[in-house]
């Protein structure tokens, strides 16, 4: 973890920086070998928005979440959540990883998985008790999974797995939520349930950063957008930022991907730029890590 000395210098509370932003990221860079996965990312997300992180495959969307949360080694950069360094902000952060990240044959029940969201807050040597179980049950009700509390997790569908992970993050009662493709590969029921919960969270004034794959629903679902392709190409309110030009810059002019996603009049303004972004083009053809 970088910046340990700075944290100590700031005293027990740690330094406060940009406290008016839910998430503030400076110069964040992640490299795998010589290939940059994230390059000089600056990110400012105001509180209370639901932000979509979109970009092509391999753009570093998941890596961005992992780097912000300190789950992957970074080459450079600083992260502030609610004005605080990560270490002091842990208790205010909720995380929903991709559901494929774990072995769903693990011997445990849905309620036990949801209770795990409280393990950080519980502290050492303390076991979850009746209070923790109640919190977990409430979270399961919110995602419409109350009937599945005693279900072995191997018996869940993909959408139910995702809702279980969402419930686990809900019990964290966080100010800022990071979600990695929460709607990928889930059934319509689950998607609706997940979207409802996300909108509720925003209505409660919480901030959400969501890695999102479906360009068609960005406009209808989100109010903030971050366009990412190794670098941040654009970020801001959806109305002004989610434009055909910005999308083209992000996706390298792949118009097929953009159809219907952006303003149709903006789409008609001539042929897409065929030259790839020079910032990362030289790395193409480099051997994968």
């Amino acid at each position: 973890m970088s910046g340990g000395a700075a944290e100590r210098a700031g005293g027990p509370g740690g330094p406060v920086h940009e406290p008016d932003l839910a998430v503030h990221v400076e110069d964040l860079t992640v490299t795998y070998g010589s290939r940059p996965a994230l390059w000089d990312v600056d990110l400012d997300v105001p509180p209370g928005v639901m932000a979509a992180i979109v970009g092509p495959n391999g753009a570093g969307k998941s890596t961005l979440l992992e780097a912000i949360l300190g789950l992957t080694p970074t080459t450079a950069g600083h992260v502030y959540v609610g004005g605080r360094r990560l270490r002091e902000a842990r208790g205010r952060i909720g995380y929903v990883p991709q559901r494929t990240a774990v072995d769903w044959d693990f011997p445990t029940r849905v309620l036990d998985v949801v209770t795990m969201g409280l393990y950080g807050r519980l502290g050492w040597l303390r076991r979850p008790g009746a209070k923790e179980r109640r919190l977990a049950e409430t979270a399961l009700e919110r995602v419409g999974m109350a009937d599945y509390r005693d279900r072995q997790i191997a018996q869940l569908s993909g959408g139910q797995q995702q809702r279980t992970f969402l419930a686990r993050a809900l019990v964290q009662d966080a100010d800022v939520y990071f979600l990695d493709e929460p709607m990928a590969g889930v059934d319509a029921t689950s998607e609706a349930a997940i979207l409802d919960v996300l909108r509720d969270l925003r209505a409660e004034g919480r901030t959400l950063l969501v890695v999102h794959h479906d360009l068609q629903t960005v406009r209808t679902t989100f109010d903030w957008v971050v366009l990412l392709n190794v670098r941040v190409l654009a970020q801001g309110p959806v109305e002004t930022t989610y434009t055909a030009d910005n999308l083209r810059a992000t996706y390298g002019g792949d118009v097929a991907l953009l159809s219907g996603a952006a303003d149709p009049t903006a789409n008609a303004d001539g042929a897409p730029d065929p030259t790839p972004d020079p910032a990362y083009a030289p790395h193409e053809g480099t051997r994968d890590a």
């Binding site: 300190g70 789950l71 842990r90 995380y95 990240a101 774990v102 693990f106 445990t108 964290q172």
Partner: peptide, 13 residues
Amino acid sequence: LVTFDPTYAAALG
């Protein structure tokens, strides 16, 4: 938690 989901464990601190 570390056995089931080490990444999430790290995210919890």
